[in-house]
Write a protein that binds this DNA or RNA. Structure first.
Lengths: 202, 202
DNA sequence: TCAAAAAGCAACTAATCAGTTACTTTTGTA
DNA sequence: TACAAAAGTAACTGATTAGTTGCTTTTTGA
């Protein structure tokens, strides 16, 4: 194989292995040797491609955060048209979080570590939600007295929290809240709650 | 000083130092030497009082979880009487979380580590909320078609999430969401959302 | 085809850390 | 007061870990 491609492949394999390990055990407990082993790559290659353990970590974060952009673009493309729009936003976000479990975990680790490396991707998402709500207000489809920032924050947090406390609450309730059926129930509940709040009084 | 008291004091100092350190950096990054230094105690004392690093950790968790019981007892003592009850539950929970930042962080660390040591305290809290909502339904003060479990879960998660993602969202929004004023706004928002959802249609 | 450059590797190093040991000081009690 | 038990201490140990070094293999281009 060509040298450039080989090198790029190694880099890719390192990033994938690092994402799995950093997201599952966090930065402090992650072992560089474990990343190398999982990637099927010599440890030195990690230092050849990235400066340090922190270097790999921030590269992983960048990669993972960037995936949110796709969802953000979807949200930005929506026109606020009422209940249906909210349903789509929530179910799209749930879908994103379901298919990106390492995003959820890395956000949480980052948060506990004082958000050392927050990227712009999550900021854009909030802005997109705010703009959407605002356009809803202008069209008279959303209550005019709404605090747009708080509401956008809530939408984000309420969806996210269905994932972020999964383990503890699953143990407490004695059922797997990560199961598709439970998550669907949760998405529906969050959507209904939201609609009840943001739609103008009839 | 008396031997028993001296020993108990040392144990206390260790637990306090360990709580600060475990909650701020998590189990993996916490250093036993750092706990000893912060407690102003010889490292060996940690091993004299607790078996191992894990031993101290689980003792800390037990201590911290037990503080939730007080709030749980408050909730259990309430009678559902409508909007005012919801307001009190939310503001009491916010008050608890504000004055117990290490509870929030330890719950999050635990969650990321697969909830190794979940205790009964959080379970009792959920049960209390469910019972309260149920009694509201029976009195006709709460919508009868409510999914009590989902709603209790939401109440819990929505309050908790105001704290759990503070760092990342503070950075994104460029303001300190941990400030009292911001938290008060958030509590009010959550309360209003909740009321809109659970109260029966007029 | 062949040398230079890039990629890959195994073995090493210095630092860090959980846990231990062997010892001294303090305290309670007979 | 004397002595045994408990509390406290400092220095050590073995294992682990991030990061390095010096070497071999593979690939590229003239």
């Amino acid at each position: 194989m060509e040298q450039k491609k080989k090198s790029a492949l190694t880099r890719q394999k390192i990033l994938e292995a690092a994402e799995e390990i950093f997201s599952s055990v966090g930065f402090a407990a992650a072992r560089v040797d474990a990343i190398a082993e999982r990637a099927g790559v010599n440890k030195q290659m990690i230092y050849a491609h990235f400066e340090s353990k922190e270097g790999v970590y921030s590269a992983v974060l960048e990669r993972v955060y960037s995936r949110l952009s796709e969802y953000q673009d979807t949200v930005a493309s929506y026109e606020f048209e009422g209940a249906e729009t909210v349903k789509r936003i929530v179910s799209d976000y749930f879908a994103f979080l379901i298919s990106n479990p390492s995003f959820v975990r890395l956000m949480l680790w980052e948060n506990l570590n004082g958000a050392r490396y927050v990227q712009q991707a999550p900021a854009a998402l909030l802005d997109g939600l705010k703009a959407l709500l605002q356009s809803g207000i202008e069209k008279g489809l959303v209550r005019a007295d709404l605090d747009v920032e708080q509401t956008a924050l809530s939408l984000n947090l309420f969806c996210f929290s269905a994932f972020s406390n999964q383990y503890t609450f699953s143990k407490l309730l004695g059922k797997d809240l990560g199961a598709r059926k439970e998550l669907a129930k949760r998405a529906e509940h969050v959507t209904q709650m939201f609609l009840g709040y943001i739609l103008p009084e009839k």
